[in-house]
């Protein structure tokens, strides 16, 4: 009797908790459906694929860095464990040749000066400030990409019973790759505008972008993609690789977080069971 009423209560509350976590899914004005990709870093035990991060960095460097900076990522991060893990010597060289130099100073003459970047410097973009960026990009601002994978998400705008079901599923499966899925969809989402849609000046049609009109010209395309050292390459592969790299940039501790995480969970699970067995013995004579 007490057991069943507790069960109803428990079920009710499971529902409360699930439903209550709705904000992550606040409908974003009828957004486009975004397909989920399979990511090496997804799920409970996922880890970054080092080779993929290296390829992704190559895309960033060769394509995106022409317009976007990554001011929260330091060259030294490219060497650290849990990231692309490039050899230190090559990153030093990369930093020294990075076209966007570091403004330092004042020197003994009291002047500011530009100098090549070092391991301890951030990866700057081409523009000194947002105004300069807008001036060069026809009024649009290419955002800094350091946090972009965390600053974007996919939205669940399903009708409420389905909404709740999807939410429960996401919690149970630990779905946290919305940022990467969005980036992939954005980079592969350029299309001819449908008949009747009039693009504003300098705008491009993109199915994934909210409102579908984006100022960024397709940085990659079916024909114009980057080839890797082994000669392979495609739009989809480029997009996935750079999305993975950007996910790492915004979440550089994922590897250690997840490798600690499953151990902690296992420990808690075992301890909970042991405590429960102990509790049963203690209560054996009280029921």
């Amino acid at each position: 009797m007490s057991k069943t009423s507790f069960k109803t209560f428990g079920l009710g509350f499971a529902a409360v908790t699930l439903l209550a976590s709705a904000p992550a899914f606040a409908a974003e004005g009828g957004g486009h459906h975004i397909d989920r990709q399979t990511w090496a870093f997804g799920g409970l035990t996922g880890q970054y694929d080092k080779a993929q991060l290296q390829r992704g960095f190559q895309i960033y460097k060769d394509v995106c860095s022409a317009c976007h900076g990554m001011k929260r990522v330091y060259f030294r991060n490219l060497v650290q464990p849990g990231g692309p893990e490039f050899p230190e010597a090559s990153v030093k060289e990369l930093a020294a040749q990075w076209p966007n130099q570091i403004t330092d100073g004042p020197n003994d003459a009291g002047e500011m000066f530009d100098r090549p970047a070092k391991l301890s410097d951030p990866m700057l973009g081409p523009y000194k400030n947002d105004k300069a960026a807008r001036a060069a990009q026809g009024g649009a601002l290419p955002p800094d990409l350091s946090n972009i994978a965390k600053a974007r998400n996919v939205h669940n705008s399903a009708f409420w019973p389905k909404h709740v079901w999807l939410m429960a599923k996401d919690i149970a499966t630990g779905y946290q790759e919305g940022g990467a899925d969005y980036l992939y969809a954005l980079l592969t989402g350029y299309q001819e505008p449908p008949a009747g849609v009039k693009l504003a000046d300098g705008m491009n049609y993109n199915v994934a972008f909210p409102g579908h009109q984006i100022a960024m010209a397709p940085p990659l395309s079916k024909e114009g993609f980057q080839t890797y050292a082994d000669g392979s390459g495609s739009l989809e592969k480029n997009a996935a690789d750079v999305a993975a790299y950007l996910t790492w940039a915004s979440d550089p501790s994922l590897n250690s977080r997840k490798s600690t995480g499953w151990v902690v969970l296992l420990y808690l699970l075992v301890t909970t069971v042991l405590l429960w067995l102990g509790k049963k013995r203690i209560w054996a004579n009280a029921h």
């Binding site: 976590s21 904000p23 992550a24 409970l44 996401d170 946290q176 977080r257 997840k258 995480g261 969970l265």
Partner: peptide
């Protein structure tokens, strides 16, 4: 550990 950003925006 698995979905730290899920509950945020």
């Amino acid at each position: 550990f698995v979905m730290p950003d899920y509950l945020g925006h």
